[in-house]
Nucleic acid binder design. Structure first.
Lengths: 205, 205, 205, 205
DNA sequence: CATGAATGAGAATTCATTCAT
DNA sequence: AATGAATGAATTCTCATTCAT
């Protein structure tokens, strides 16, 4: 029988994850300080080790928690209309996750860019569900002749998610000036589907 | 009257820069170990400090050296033909730099993704020349009606360079499986100019 | 709920201060080695930094601790009789501090002689209380015509304390041969009040 | 046959000693930087080791050079009149050395206060000649009944030189405010001979 | 379970000394 | 003799992890 209730435990765990996400987003895995995390979470240093077995493990659980929260959001995405509409809805869902869980997302994007084999799997696990849904929409689009059929759908999905991430990076890198988060969904869909060349017959898809 | 010749000195400096680039590419600024760098370069710890005044300064000089080598490569890029051809030539030049100076480029990309104000300027200085050339080509393309005119050229240039970086990240992240470096130039140009939607009238531009 | 009792903590702190005083007395601020200090105190290197935030801070706290101990001793000094008797009592109190806290005092005297602006204030704070008491006795002495009135009392106090320090320096410099600590109080009082010229009418004051 | 003339060598040696004295006076033996010394002297680092075999040896030679210069000055001191007059002349000679060779003297005084067995002998060698002359004057004073005969002359001489040093320390410590160098000779003689107690019959001796 | 002091390997940096030129 | 780059032991300080209370 634990001395404290499961609710209290879960709350402490979430406080730690939130504090860790914020610290990791700001300073990266190496520079993040456990002292800062426990202080922000309002617990003692030893307590952190009752919940997470190491700094790295804590990092992985932050990624996983981010994935869980994002997945919950994707569930609610309306899934009908044209390929363009469906991709836009997915992009908007991702942006809305970013708005509410910026720290968690930043941790993922940051680490995704550092190409470390140790964290590769965790990142993929995070992106997996989203990537799968994007790929499904694209596959449908290929069927409907709304997406080119000369490239594997998985690669197209990677390009879409990659473009989205790139826009986030530019958003953060520019001090949130360009693109703003509001612009991102349209921008990623246009970039992905239409490209930069002009069209003779208006938008396609 | 120096004890060693300028050539020997320059050689040592380059050995240090190369070793530092490799270590920084592998482990990032924080985790990179000066011990590992000097060992790889075959000099004593103190020698490093005869050439670079701090770890951070060494990092900056690695970025600058990468920029210098890249700039030298861009000089030779053929600059005529259609927008598509010119962008492809720029992409190929960048890929060829990447092939020969992978460590230096990785350091830049890694750090570019970490959004640290301290390194922001150095990164920009590295990317600046390339970005400028890309933007010039795009501006010409807009004039020639080969590029859409409803977005600022600087933003289009950022999207191009962003896509290129994204492909590098996927290249590294996938263990160099997809995309391979050979595929990158075509891929980035197609992605950037054409997008994923099918075309009725063949390629444009 | 600390893992260790406040008493144990205070004990560790005092062990560290004592070890630091000894090391600083022997080698001065520059050459004192933190390794030697923690080894003498029987704690790990990191522990030192749980108690003191830097080597310099440790040094300041050694000075302050010395001042505290000396002040406690001065409290008990009998404060009546002739100027000569009162000065002798003050000198004896200082010597008794020196006997018991030689390391702490040595640190102060050493550093006082190095004229470093960074440590000047700490030294003054250490000497201040003693200097003040000496000056008060001298001022009374002037009133009672037992001390010459043609010099400011603060300068006379400085001369007294200076003579005392000088005798300590000679004590240490001679390998504790001359003067011995037993001789110091008489010597400083005689030197200060009487000087080296012979008297026709015996001692004054 | 050396490539450079003995004069040029001696000049270099003196430049090094002067630069070293200045650096040692400012920063003490530990903190003094050989880089700063060779830069101030306008020679290369290796050159210093052609003249002095180590930092410590350089330090000793600075002390010795200071002693030589002081000794030269003492030679010229007028040596007649009362004990008071002769002591005053010795004090003035020392002050005049201080005025012209402040760096060298500061090095000696600084080190004298740090009680290090390694440097003890060098210090004594520096002070020896002066101490001897002071003691001779005091011995004459005892004969002439101008100095008390109840203390060994060597100890009286030590007290005199000690008082002088103390006044220097206070001079430097106070930012040269009190005592000024002008005041020192009278002050040290009065302190030494008369003390702080008032006299019924005016000055003695 | 929570606590927070103790730990010590590892980090960057300094600088007196050496020695090939 | 003069040079100044190379050296590496020594230094201060950090911080993730452990564990007695």
């Amino acid at each position: 029988m634990p001395r404290i209730s499961p609710q209290a435990q879960e709350e402490t765990r979430l406080r730690l994850l939130g504090a860790a996400a914020r610290e990791l987003a700001r300073h990266g895995l190496e520079r993040a300080s456990l002292d800062a995390i426990v202080e922000a979470a309002g617990v003692a240093k030893g307590t952190l080790y009752n919940y997470f077995e190491s700094k790295e493990q804590l990092f992985f659980e932050v990624i996983a928690e981010g994935a869980r929260r994002a997945a919950a959001r994707y569930e609610t995405v309306a899934d009908r209309g044209s390929t363009r509409e469906r991709l836009r809805a997915l992009a908007e869902a991702d942006v809305s996750v970013l708005r509410e869980e910026e720290d968690f997302i930043k941790v993922v994007v940051r680490e995704a860019m550092s190409f470390r084999p140790e964290t590769y799997e965790a990142i993929l696990e995070h992106l997996g569900p989203y990537l799968t849904r994007v790929e499904a929409v694209i596959a449908d689009g290929v069927q409907a002749k709304e997406v080119r059929d000369d490239l594997p759908t998985v690669q197209l999905a990677l390009m879409f998610v990659g473009s989205l991430s790139m826009l986030y990076v530019q958003h953060w890198g520019s001090g949130k000036v360009w693109p703003t988060l509001d612009e991102v969904p349209d921008l990623v869909v246009a970039t992905f589907l239409d490209g930069a060349a002009p069209r003779w017959k208006g938008k396609v898809g």
